[in-house]
Every structure is written in structure tokens, then in C-alpha cells.
Simulated assay, not measured.
Amino acid sequence: MSIPVSALLGSTRRFVSAIVLFVLLDLTVLVINLWLADQLADDAVAINLAGRQRMLSQQTTKALLLANGAADPATRAAAADELATAFGLFEQTLTAFAESGQTLGGDDTPVTLKAVTGEAARAVREARAIVAPLKAMLHGATPASRDGPHYAAAADYMVRHNREVLSLMNSLTTALEHDSVRRSRDLRAIQTGAFVLALGNFLAIVVGLLRQFRATETDRQRWRELARHDPLTGLANRKAFTETALGVLARAEVDGSCGAVLMLDLDGFKPINDSFGHATGDRILIALAASLDATARATDTAARLGGDEFAILCPNLHEPAHIDQFCGRLLAAIARIPDEICPGRMLGASIGVAVYPDNGYALANLMGQADRAMYAAKHSGGNRWQAA
């Protein structure tokens, strides 16, 4: 017999659902990890460029002072070029922080910055308000007009606002660092939650598999037991009787022990079935099996071989007197089957006995001889036992 298909399908669906959920949670953790890595990379770039803004603001102030006050024309020209580069990059990066956009990274490759929020946005907004007049002052400053009034006014303006710009860039850097730490903490909390869910689901899968394994083993054991028992009477069936008897006889042949094999058949069972119906016949067989099981010794094995044919393996039952007593008890027990099952009918049985080692140790031979003895008892009038 096999485990019901519906039970297998139900277990399979639950198992597949748990696996799919585990994979989805695992993918979620992977996506969060990738997202977290991207966020941390973006934060690192932003913090690095915010730090560079402090340097560029100081470089702009220094270049303005040199472009305005250096005595050497070559020094003023070099300072003007440095000013254009430093201030241009400073203003470009500030705009990227404010509006989302591209600027140059530390290795002079384009990078895209996201618009900052909160305290960082305030620092950028105030810095742009300070830088706007300076940008207007330098608008007309070209290499041809380096000695003009542009640099003098711009240098004076930048000196007056230098500390303020530096403080704002420090605030920008600090705000970005705080935002990065907070975002990392939030993302890691999400990551941890997803991991805990995935782990919990994995443990649930393991527990489910163990439970399913135990349930399957229990079912298999139950089906194995059912496969070895007669479904109507609960006695051992022919397969179980054969396996047990072969084992007992093999040991008996080794140690030289003795015993008996009994074949039993109800007398007149077919007429009872025909007269009272198969339901009554089944009740008789159940009652007969209960009588045999109650009469048999603890070491005996009673089995229903089919129909109204039964067999009993009786180790260490060899002496004729003991066999006579045992068969007498069997017939008496059968006679006591309640009359209400089959009113007006006295139940009896014919029993054939083969003993080992007298009749050998081969099970087929023992059962064959016991079966012939049983039919001899039946032909002699029934309700008796006959030795092979």
C-alpha cells in the first residue's frame, strides 16, 4: 500500500511554497545588500566632494588674493588660471549638491550627485547665496583684464566671507556624514529584518521537513503494518505469517527446537454466508479471529490466509497431549462465539496439524501436510483436529 496521493500533494505544495518564500526573502536580502552598497558608495563620494569644497573655497580665496596683489605678472596669471579652475569646480559641485547633477570627481571623471536634503540642503543654499555675488564679480574677469577692478572687489568679498563659506562647507560635510550613518543604520535594520525573516523561514523549512519526514515514516510504518495484517480481522496476513514462520523455522532448524503449524477452516461457512449474508459472515470471521488471538499463546502467530482459512504457528508445541489440549481450547473458543451473530447455528472448525522436526522444517511442506490433515478432519465430520 502507498501513502495517499492527496497527502503527498499537500506536503509538496507546502514544501514548494516554503522554498519559494525562502528564495524570495534571500533575493530581498541580496537586493538590499546591493542597494546598501550603492548607497554607501554614493555617500562616500558625496562626503569626499563636500570635503573637497572646503579645500576649493580656501583655494579660491588664496588665488583671488594672488591674482589681485602679486607683484609678478606671471604669478598673477597663474593665480587667475587657478582661480578659474577652483571656483568653477566649487560652483559646479555646489550646484550639483543643490539640484542633482554632474560634477568632476577626485579622479577628474564625471560623477552624478543627488540633491541633498535637510541640514545639508540648508548649508548648500546659504553657500550659494554667498557665492552668487562673487560669481557676478568674476564674470568679466578674463586673462586680458586681470589687472582690472574685478579681482580687487572679489578678493575683498571673499576674505570677508571666507570663514562663513568654510563653516558652511564643514556643516555640509558633517550633515552628509550624519545622513550616511542614519541611512546605513536604517538600511541595515531592514537588511537584518529581511535576514531574520529568511532565517526564520529556513528554520521553518527545516522543521517542516523534519515533521514531514517523521510523518512520512509514521505513515510508512502504518502502511507497512497494514500491509502485514488482514484488513478485516486484524490478524497477520499470509505475507506476514510466511515471513515470521520462515524466520522461526530457520532458527529451529539450527537449534533443533520443535513446534507445530496448524491450519484451521470453519465448518459449513459457505452456507452461513449464503443464508445470512456476507455481513454476517464477516462478523463471524472477526469473532473467530478474536477467539484465535485470545486462545493462542504469546509466542504463537495467528494469521488469516484468506476466506475462512486460518493458520497458527506454535513454537515449542510438539507433544501430542499438548497439541490435543491446545486444539481443544481452540474448538471450545470457537463454539462460544455469540449465538446472536448466527442464530441457531453452532460454529465448528476443522484443524490440521503438522509438527517439526517430524515433518521437516520446510514451511511449504508443513503447511501442505497440515492442510491435507485439515481436510481429512473435515471429511471425518468436522469440528475436530487431525495430525499429519
Rank of each mutant, 00 (worst) to 15 (best):
K378R: 07
N33R: 06
R283D: 12
D179L: 04
A46K: 06
H278T: 02
A387M: 15
E91V: 03
T280I: 12
G10N: 13
S180Y: 01
S100G: 13
D108K: 10
A144P: 02
Q59S: 14
Q53V: 01
L21W: 06
R146A: 09
P343S: 09
G307A: 10
A136N: 12
G193Y: 09
A198H: 06
K62I: 09
F326A: 09
V111K: 10
R222N: 08
R329A: 01
D308I: 04
A333W: 02
L8P: 03
L199R: 07
V165E: 14
A152P: 01
R224L: 10
L199N: 11
H178A: 14
L199W: 09
Q386G: 00
L285R: 03
D147T: 12
L49H: 07
N33V: 03
E217H: 14
L168H: 07
A77I: 02
S291Y: 01
N68Q: 05
G368V: 01
P149N: 01
I272P: 01
V111I: 11
L209C: 01
Q92K: 14
P271F: 09
Y361K: 04
A194T: 13
P149Y: 03
L89D: 15
A121E: 02
A302K: 01
A294S: 09
I286T: 12
F202W: 13
F269S: 03
H379G: 00
L113P: 02
V181N: 11
I286E: 11
D230I: 03
W223C: 02
K114V: 04
L246T: 13
D371F: 05
T192G: 11
G281Y: 11
S100C: 02
T12E: 08
R76Y: 06
V207H: 09
S57R: 01
Q59L: 13
D274F: 07
R122P: 00
L264I: 15
A132T: 12
I19Y: 04
D255T: 10
W35C: 00
S11T: 15
A296W: 00
D293M: 06
M346I: 05
I205Q: 09
F90Q: 15
A332C: 04
M55T: 08
V131P: 01
S380L: 09
F276Q: 12
P133Q: 12
R188C: 03
A294C: 00
T60P: 06
T109G: 03
R224Y: 01
H150D: 08
T75A: 15
A240V: 05
A50E: 03
G268Q: 05
A376R: 11
M1D: 01
T173S: 14
G148W: 05
L166N: 10
E319I: 05
I272D: 00
A198S: 15
A332H: 13
T299H: 06
P271R: 06
A289Q: 11
A155M: 07
S380T: 02
T299S: 14
L40S: 09
R251M: 08
Y356E: 03
D265E: 14
F195L: 15
L285V: 05
A71W: 04
V248M: 10
L21E: 05
L249F: 06
